[in-house]
Design a binder for these strands. Structure first.
Lengths: 284, 284
DNA sequence: TAGTGGTCTAGACCACGTG
DNA sequence: ACGTGGTCTAGACCACTAT
């Protein structure tokens, strides 16, 4: 890792960190407000794997988010400041931030600034827990952790986490209770390397979303997730923990969550009781 | 309904059709490329329910989509043409189209133009059928229509469709088969007013997505949908039609689909067999 | 009053697709 | 060669929030 690039020209000289794509001639235009007086064709690089400037800026900003230069909840520099830092126009920074906002990595607040999003605020937004009660408002229930231990990854989990079978993982089992009814049984596997020191006590002490704990204590932010949903019959263990009859239909939700760079860090297998709740999904 | 407004000034005079929001002073700026020479404060309307220009343009374009001025699959006028038509800058039109593209109402194709999206292409994109096989590529299966009849809306359906109990609706029942296995049992209710002349024969003759038929033959485009998902036990009827044991767990998907203006036009209750398929969902 | 994001414009140039 | 969407810039002004 070389030092953090602070201006685009530096980045261009080094090549952008991950994709290795060169600056590719974009931005070499002569703005020249006076019309008709265009100058300097400067036809350097025609277009080998062209990447827009704003995408490069987006990548640089994302890098600063990942390294923790701006932490969840904090304000990032203003558009003008970033434009100066990267030596591009404010409009280009704007477009980069637009995409970051669309990806839910940052949130803009008019008159105040642009802020790094937090899973703590997501209590309101319910990005990751899509279980909604038939009546009443969505809410987070009480979490009871049954188990939290380190072990070696079984083959299937290792495959999903993109690690080797036998690598260290943390396994958590827990029950979520809504209005005094056991509703969700979760079995969670986390990348061992990222969650050293995670214990059942820490989990039980924590009030609020589990992902908020992960981002605050372990510096691991869940950015996106992919879920596979099925209907299954409750086995004896699940039936007992969820207080339903064995064989009852349960919603099975297998989730893989990703951090920056689309690296998988969590596998979560949830069993949901859907007699008084449903899984909400919007297609558009 | 007055005549179709073709320029923004006309729209401003009439007020925008739905929200009734006035032009609200936006766009009354003096561009004046020569710096320092700003003119004409023209302080008319301060900001009573301010609506950005590009949103008004977006609404006007959406209107033309709704009225069928540009039909699914067709190209809409170029950004420059639309800019001239609405008397705004190309950048403002661009931002309006950006949002329409984000909403999947149109699709941009560089070098060619901007096209009204079609449910027929969605075969590739699988916006609305999220059932994926454990192995192999997603694909549409064979549809067998069991029933297609007009009847009076029961209370529950009427509520979801925002009509009165007893109003005319079309009910369809069908089975979807993937690789020779009955997988989906659908019960569909459509707004009677929009689907006059829909018969089981028409449905059975049609190859391709049902929504493509709806948009091509009945001029009703599904824009977005909202789904409530549960796990349920198969009753005797469902069990027989889907060739599973009574009591088997099935995925229950209750969907309400909306056209332009967020008007509900379809209620669909699906029962999915999820032994060899799963419902795919991405959170972000 | 000052600072931030949000809107609007206008012009130049690039990349893509099709003649 | 031409037209379309895509990128980039620069400047002016509006709307919101805090001080």
């Amino acid at each position: 890792m070389s030092s953090l690039p602070t201006s685009l020209t530096a980045a261009a000289a080094n090549g952008t960190p991950e994709s290795g794509a060169p600056l590719s001639g974009a931005g070499t235009q002569s703005p020249s407000n006076t019309p008709g007086a265009s100058v300097a064709p400067a036809g350097v690089s025609p277009s080998p794997t062209f990447s827009p400037l704003y995408q490069q800026i987006k990548a640089l900003i994302m890098q600063s988010l990942q390294t923790g230069e701006w932490k969840p909840g904090e304000m990032i520099p203003s558009e003008m400041d970033l434009a100066a830092r990267y030596k591009v126009s404010q409009g280009t920074v704007r477009k980069a931030i637009d995409e970051l906002a669309a990806d839910n990595l940052v949130a803009r607040r008019q008159g105040k600034g642009t802020f790094v999003t937090t899973h703590y605020e997501d209590v309101v937004k319910f990005r990751f827990l899509r279980l909604v009660p038939d009546e009443g408002e969505p809410h987070y229930g009480a979490s009871r952790v049954l188990e939290c231990k380190r072990l070696r990854a079984p083959a299937e989990i290792a495959r999903l986490l993109d690690i080797r079978t036998g690598d260290s993982v943390v396994q958590i089992r827990r029950v979520l209770t809504f209005s005094n009814e056991a509703t969700v049984l979760d079995e969670i596997w986390l990348l061992g390397a990222n969650f050293k020191g995670l214990t059942a006590e820490k989990l039980n002490e924590w009030k609020g979303p589990m992902y908020a704990l992960f981002e605050a204590e372990f510096g691991t932010r869940m950015i996106r997730a992919s879920e596979k949903i099925r209907a299954v019959a409750a086995d004896d263990t699940a039936a007992e923990l969820l207080s339903v009859e064995p064989g009852s239909p349960l919603l099975s939700v297998e989730r893989v969550s990703f951090t920056y760079g689309d690296r998988p860090v969590e596998v979560r297998r949830g069993l949901y009781v859907t007699t008084r709740h449903y899984y909400q999904n919007d297609l558009s």
